[in-house]
Every structure is written in C-alpha cells, then in structure tokens.
C-alpha cells in the first residue's frame, strides 16, 4: 500500500511543514523546520498530471492522445492545476 504524504493540517487546515528527515540506509535523522515543496503540496492526481505534462514536453495535444481525453479537457485540467498552485503558493507565503 502506498502511503500518501499529508500536507494539510487535520486540526487547522494550514499547510504542514517537514520536521524531520531520515536516511533509510544509515538511520541518520535530520531535524528542522522545512517548507514542503510546492508540488508536494498538490494531490497525488495533480502531481501525476504534472509528470505526464513534462513527459509529453508540455504538449497538451500529445497528452490528450495519451490519456484518451479531448484537448479542452486536458487544458481545463492544466488550468485547474495552475489555480491550485497559485493557492498553495499564496498559502505558503502567508498571503491567505
């Protein structure tokens, strides 16, 4: 079972930060207070969409063919991801 990386606080719905990182090879642990990368703050589905977008060299036409969807559907998905990225960035800078 793949675990989902939580990025929203279940208590107050703010963005979560990273407190510690661990090396799975030697068990070295690093502690601190790090912001999650913006992409990690998106849902797994949105991250997968971005990976497909990059793999298709940013061509929505090729992506639509690969996904078996129409061009405007893929463009709308991209626009939704752009909107979400804007919200995450504004949240991380404390604008909202």
């Amino acid at each position: 079972m793949s675990k989902k990386l939580p990025h929203i606080c279940p208590s107050c719905s703010s963005l979560l930060n990273v407190k510690s990182l661990i090396c799975s090879h030697c068990d070295t642990e690093v502690s601190g207070n790090y912001n999650l990368p913006v992409l990690a703050s998106l849902t797994e589905e949105d991250q997968q969409f971005i990976i497909s977008f990059v793999k298709c060299s940013g061509s929505l036409k090729i992506m639509a063919q690969d996904l078996g969807l129409s061009y405007p559907t893929v463009r709308n998905m991209l626009d939704d991801v752009i909107l979400k990225l804007g919200v995450v960035q504004r949240k991380s800078t404390g604008e909202i």
């Binding site: 078996g68 129409s70 061009y71 405007p72 559907t73």
Partner: peptide, 11 residues
C-alpha cells in the same frame, strides 16, 4: 462526450 471528443473530429 466532450471530455473524450472535441475539436476537428467533433466538428
């Protein structure tokens, strides 16, 4: 059906 089909083919 426009989720799957649009553009020139649909036209």
């Amino acid at each position: 059906p426009f989720i799957y089909l649009a553009g020139g083919k649909a036209l």
